[in-house]
Design a protein around this nucleic acid. Sequence first.
DNA 1: ACAATTTGTGAGAGCGCTCCCAAGATAATG
DNA 2: CATTATCTTGGGAGCGCTCTCACAAATTGT
Lengths: 334, 334
Amino acid sequence: MTNLTLEMIAETAGVSRSTVSRVVNDHPNVRPEVRERVQKVINETGYQPHAAARSLASRRTHMLGLVIPRSVQHFFSDPYFPRLTQGIAEACNAADYTLSLFLLHTADDEKKLIPRISRRGMLDGIIIQSTHLRDSVIPDISEGQVPFLVAGRPMNAPNASFIDVDNVSGAMKAVQHLIGLGRRRIATVAGSPDTAAGLDRLTGYRRALKENGLAIDEDLITAGDFTEPGGYEAAGRLLERQPDAIFCGSDMMAVGVLRRLKEAGVRVPEEISIVGYDDLPPARLTDPPLTTIRQPIRRFGVRAVQTLTEMVSHPNQGQVRVILDATELVVRGT
Amino acid sequence: MTNLTLEMIAETAGVSRSTVSRVVNDHPNVRPEVRERVQKVINETGYQPHAAARSLASRRTHMLGLVIPRSVQHFFSDPYFPRLTQGIAEACNAADYTLSLFLLHTADDEKKLIPRISRRGMLDGIIIQSTHLRDSVIPDISEGQVPFLVAGRPMNAPNASFIDVDNVSGAMKAVQHLIGLGRRRIATVAGSPDTAAGLDRLTGYRRALKENGLAIDEDLITAGDFTEPGGYEAAGRLLERQPDAIFCGSDMMAVGVLRRLKEAGVRVPEEISIVGYDDLPPARLTDPPLTTIRQPIRRFGVRAVQTLTEMVSHPNQGQVRVILDATELVVRGT
DNA sequence: ACAATTTGTGAGAGCGCTCCCAAGATAATG
DNA sequence: CATTATCTTGGGAGCGCTCTCACAAATTGT
């Protein structure tokens, strides 16, 4: 009962292994009545093709890997990653791929896992979350022969295929909103300067000021590390420079900024306007609720999977770059 | 260059396929000098065994699946699941297993994915997040022949192996703390009554009251659904009954309760004390920071993987039950 | 009507590995 | 030194599937 094979189905259906295989894989060249007869046997027995055998013969595993490098320390404290994971998982389901998750916590993990990740016959393709400049996960994985796509512009692998959202234009929307509010001393708590997202959002901040004829005051630019405590500290530094608005490179940092401002007795948005970035669940729960830039994280995940599966079926296309411009200002209370 | 096989390594090392296999798998019976010679060829060529071929021959994939049923709607809005995922991923890394993630969003997903999940030759074992009473994912998966372990006591599969934390004793700790504070009208916002966690924590609440000689007032018992808005609403219902303390079945609900109390102008903890459950990151960010019950989610994940791999290597052990009693009261500001 | 296609089916040859077994080499024993 | 036990190595037989190819059957064309 337990170990059904193609051959056994073939025998009880009175056809050959090949024909059963055709039925299972929806190959057109099977006589309808034969197909039906075989299908019946399959249903009755509950036959399921053996995944490993199939992979070995077809050289396809129908599995995708999602790699979150260790340098993304704030993995699950920042809701961004779960959200991304969700989008990617959803897209995998839809595309009939199985998703494997690789959370690289420690340096040991990386040493141990990277060879396993790029092992042949395990993954059809890999999505790697982009990371710090000095992180070597992306270069390491690119040594393997499995096609991969970086989520977020990679800092240290300029030739790698990647997909990203347009962080520059998103940041510009945020700053333009603040300018439209009449703010003139607009500060920013930028993300880590060694990440593409941090850098690009800062670029957007600068560009928006410039395009609106405002001077850029380097004293109003400070960096957090995308975390809540990072935002809290940055706000402390910024307070004495008396900005009338702060653009934060992530919602988590904005939450920290709000906490610091509340402690200092600064009223938001009366004295200082705040705009975050990401539109994650915590943004709704702040007091007042956070005005922010929404990223289409889910769609991002879906697009990533589409792009990668495309690369899998048509290799050697050279570098693929996809940039989504789909950010959106969400005006709430700050 | 690209498609190295055991055979090719064997040839260039001047040994047989079998010997190379022994070297790769650390089989003891290989002469040291031969082992070294083979290892050298392996290193130079960057040979990696082909995962699918190995799985087919050995009948082991070294892959575990984590299934989050659709009825866990609040998947990534509740940080609990990411945390659990992280713990499990970590444990998988340590145990040399690859983790596959199955997020079942829709009924379609379930229909499509469950056969794939329980397909032979793909997963060595499965961890399923426990869910609602009426959910059929666990029974469905148990039809397959892949060993599985339910994370959280399963409501509708009494014979399934599972691992759980002791929610009853955890809830008792919370309520005892409130009693120790001198509170007497202790209300509870219970979790969904069709989940084991919700039920068990409510049981703990009742038992703690009883053991301390306090009457149970059914009017002080209300249910949320583990979400922030659920807590917000429940608090509204509770307000008129004038409790002096509220035990919440999850941190997310406690966050909602706090929001509602703040709106009503009720001072916490002066007028009403609050205790949450889970000790997730948001618990620290509330104002005042939330007193809560910490669950060893990470350790829970680790234990789950250990238990499952044990089941994989020793099948037919009958039902396995593991209950961790490792909850801990974390006193903060509420 | 018969040749030229098109379609349906089966057999064979792997995919790259593990695992068992047999045989030769070596070591331990009386 | 013969004899038995142990190590080391290679070869064979699959694991359960896909895929190409050859051939039979059905369809089409002239």
